[in-house]
């Protein structure tokens, strides 16, 4: 249907401009969370690199470690999905290619985040009796 309205009028009225800021804010809030979580993860990575399977399992049995690891996965997969979306929108002009990549990016983000968090919870919540201490 034809709506007679200038681009400026559309932008001032009810255009997409009111919603675009959601991406901007989410990108920044996840960035701030990731500053702390990534520094924590890098520090943890040093001890994990020195340890074996049992020590990694024991590490995730700490509720604090498991909780922060889940938050890290959530924030990281969200943040990277937002960033990759911007890259796809910048470099792919063809609607079909762009749309397909944007959907793929969303799927990768949610699938990766979900799988990672489920793995963390599986290890964290498993009974400790089976683990060789």
């Amino acid at each position: 249907m034809a709506v007679v309205r200038s681009p400026l009028g559309r932008a001032r009225g009810m255009g997409s401009s009111k919603h675009g800021v959601g991406h901007f804010i989410a990108q920044r809030v996840t960035a701030i969370a990731l500053v702390l979580l990534v520094l924590w993860a890098l520090a943890a990575g040093i001890s994990l690199a020195h340890g074996d399977y049992d020590s990694a399992v024991a590490w995730l049995h700490s509720p604090l470690n498991a909780g922060l690891a889940c938050l890290l996965a959530f924030a990281a997969f969200w943040h990277m999905q937002l960033g990759m979306r911007t890259i796809i929108e910048d470099y792919f002009a063809k609607a079909g290619t762009k749309g397909a990549l944007l959907v793929l990016n969303v799927f990768v983000g949610w699938l990766g985040g979900a799988l990672t968090i489920i793995c963390i919870l599986k290890v964290a919540l498993a009974a400790t009796t089976g683990v060789n201490t």
């Binding site: 399992v57 995730l60 990277m80 990766g112 799988l115 990672t116 793995c119 599986k122």
Partner: peptide, 15 residues
């Protein structure tokens, strides 16, 4: 982005 997927592979292997 690829690094996060490798971290996911680490979590999968641990599980």
């Amino acid at each position: 982005y690829l690094g996060a997927l490798l971290a996911m592979a680490w979590a999968l292997s641990l599980a």
